[in-house]
Computed example of a mutant assay.
Amino acid sequence: MNSFLILCLFGLVMAAVARPNTTYTDKYDSVNLDEILGNRRLLTPYIKCMLDQGKCTPDGKELKSHIREALEEDCAKCTKTQRDGTRRVLGHLINHEKDYWNQLKAKYDPQSKYSSKHEEELRTLKQ
């Protein structure tokens, strides 16, 4: 789903080291999303990592490697915290970072197979 796209797009939001048949690691569930979303200097490097336009931190590399799986499996391995965080991040990108949002969609969901499911709802999400 669209929700997990951003979850994976931000290494600080979730680490995607999957435990077999359970959930993604909750190691990064306590990350302060408000700090990241409120500071483009922190946000931009993670977006650029996901777009292959910049260096990735170790957690960013790990997350990037799980984006497609998460999209295809409707965030089946996400914790509740990760699902909630994903919605917040997606809403922020859709409402405040349209250029980056469009680039990310073009890379990870070029046919809008997943993003179209929730984009309209998240477009009006209060930040």
Rank of each mutant, 00 (worst) to 15 (best):
S65E: 06
G60M: 15
C78Y: 04
L33K: 04
I67W: 00
C56L: 09
R40N: 12
C78G: 07
R40Y: 10
E62K: 10
R41D: 14
G38E: 05
K80D: 13
K77M: 13
I67H: 00
K61P: 02
D59H: 10
D52H: 06
H66A: 15
K27F: 15
T57D: 12
R41Q: 14
H66D: 07
T79R: 11
P58Y: 10
E62Q: 13
H66P: 00
R83V: 14
C56R: 03
K55C: 03
K64P: 01
N39H: 10
D84R: 09
E72P: 00
T25R: 08
G54W: 02
Q53F: 05
Y24G: 00
L63M: 14
I47F: 04
C49A: 04
N32C: 07
D26K: 04
Q82M: 12
K80S: 10
E35W: 03
D29M: 01
D59E: 14
D59C: 02
R83Y: 13
R68N: 12
T57L: 12
T57P: 05
E72I: 06
G60A: 15
T79C: 02
S65Y: 01
K80Q: 11
L51A: 06
N39D: 15
R68I: 12
A76Y: 09
G60T: 10
T81F: 03
K48P: 02
D84K: 08
C75Y: 06
R68K: 14
D84T: 09
G38T: 05
T44I: 05
S65P: 03
Y24S: 01
H66F: 09
L43V: 06
L63Q: 13
T81K: 13
K80P: 05
V31M: 08
I36W: 04
K64M: 03
Q53M: 14
D26F: 03
D84W: 03
I67E: 00
L71F: 07
C49K: 00
E69V: 03
D34H: 08
Y24T: 00
L51H: 05
C75N: 11
K80T: 12
A70H: 04
C56A: 09
L42K: 14
K64C: 01
G54M: 02
K80C: 02
L43R: 04
D29L: 01
E69L: 07
N32R: 10
T57W: 07
D84M: 07
E62A: 09
E72A: 14
H66K: 15
K27Q: 12
Y46P: 00
L63N: 14
R40I: 08
Q53S: 12
E62T: 13
L37T: 02
